[in-house]
């Protein structure tokens, strides 16, 4: 694996509890919204949001690495699902330099 080779992006990772897994925090927030008068609320689930910046050779490689990070550390597959989005995809300094030379 080579670093800094052109695909510098920010990944936005969303981690959510699997269906059926108890979410006491979500329940508490739901109750609180009800008590504020938002009776239309029919369920709240809490999750985590993580941003990871990285720079790799290709989008394919970056996505594979992010998937691995999610499965090994960022999410616990017993109770959590994850998905990710890519923000502001742009050539990194390394690839710009390469293009100029």
């Amino acid at each position: 694996m080579q670093l800094g080779l052109g695909f510098a992006v920010r990944f936005k990772i969303f981690i959510s509890l699997k269906e059926g897994v108890l979410d006491p925090q979500g329940k508490a927030v739901e109750r609180s919204l009800h008590s504020l008068g938002y009776q239309e609320v029919q369920g709240v689930r809490m999750g985590k949001y993580i941003e990871v910046n990285l720079d790799l050779a290709s989008r394919q490689e970056a996505e594979a690495r992010i998937r691995e990070m999610c499965e090994r550390l960022l999410a616990n597959p017993v109770i959590e699902d994850y998905r990710f989005e890519i923000e502001d995809e742009k050539p990194s300094a390394a690839s710009k330099n390469r293009a100029e030379s």
């Binding site: 897994v21 108890l22 006491p24 925090q25 508490a28 616990n76 017993v78 109770i79």
Partner: peptide, 10 residues
């Protein structure tokens, strides 16, 4: 096996 999560009572 399994996992320990937030207490149901919070």
């Amino acid at each position: 096996p399994g996992v320990l999560t937030r207490n149901a009572s919070l």
